[in-house]
Design a protein around this nucleic acid. Structure first.
Ligand code: ZN
Ligand code: ZN
Ligand code: ZN
Ligand code: ZN
Lengths: 153, 153
DNA sequence: AACATAGTTGTTACATTATAACATTACATA
DNA sequence: TATGTAATGTTATAATGTAACAACTATGTT
């Protein structure tokens, strides 16, 4: 499920972003890391680590769990992907350049994940943390339900 | 870590709630389920399933993973506990009677979890879902950072 | 009391998700 | 080319969670 007219463009854009970010920061965007990012960007649904492994194995005989998890750690660290804790699965980041607090709308039917970055909601979260004298460091916000397209069926 | 003056009172209250809720709904609050709830309520930190198992084993020779997970499923189903997806761990529900959308402040230092239920933040989440024509069914909101007590040290 | 029933627990086995530890290889650059 | 660092290969294992079926327990009905 892609939820976008031209998904090749999404993938292309994500890979170019990754290339650019790695270049700017002197990071090595190796074949393996690129391939894992491509697999994750095959669609807009969350991808499981062991499904990535299954794909990698077909083209890369030495692929093992650490192969995949290392690539995932690299991509997470540099915010090229996100982990959805409620699903134990990974999605490509939709806007790695301008990175703020983001949250996810996850469709239970078509599995499309939309990444949102609204200042309003982010502010509401900060306000609540402040009200509890809590110093906010990391936020996990994942909303599952049904997307517009699925509701219209 | 308890984050409350009189933690025995927290536990006592939680067990009585559970008793009452099960009675009202014709559910069986068995020894095993009560014991798992007690273990979770030993403090305000998230508890891991296999740590519960380790405790149960000492007093209940036949305890195995399904023993624990069944009790957890029961307690989750009836909203006596919550699972924190960002930690793979479980906490007692602080207000099982008046249950609305809730979210969690998780202290990285002392591990105390505070469950919050603010209408304002809940509304902001709904607004955002509506803005994306998304039908919201389940929300995971977990904020990790440092609590007031730890910040003052 | 005997029986039927549904719910709970026991038991074994396994699936899924993730990491530790150490060896080897590739890459940059001096 | 030597040398150090980062990346990958390799083996093993840890951590989290479920399937499937057997045995038991509580409860209500004949
Ligand atoms: Zn797309
Ligand atoms: Zn959908
Ligand atoms: Zn307490
Ligand atoms: Zn704290």
């Amino acid at each position: 499920m892609s939820a976008c007219g031209e998904h090749d463009a999404c993938t292309e854009r994500a890979l170019q972003w990754a290339e650019q970010i790695c270049q700017e920061q002197g990071l090595r965007f190796t074949t393996l890391r690129r391939r894992v990012l491509e697999i994750i960007w095959a669609d807009h649904a969350p991808t499981k680590a062991y499904d990535i492994l299954a794909q990698l194995e077909q083209e890369h005989a030495s692929a093992k769990p650490p192969t995949v998890y290392r690539a995932l750690h690299f991509l997470l660290e540099h915010k090229l992907i996100h982990k959805l804790d409620s699903q134990n699965a990974y999605v490509g980041c939709s806007h790695p350049l301008e990175h703020e607090a983001c949250y996810f709308l996850i469709c239970k039917r078509c599995h499309v994940v939309v990444e949102c970055c609204g200042r309003a909601l982010d502010q509401a979260i900060s306000d609540s943390a402040i009200a509890h004298n809590f110093s906010r460091q990391k936020t996990t916000l994942e909303i599952s339900g049904e997307c517009e397209a699925c509701l219209q069926q």
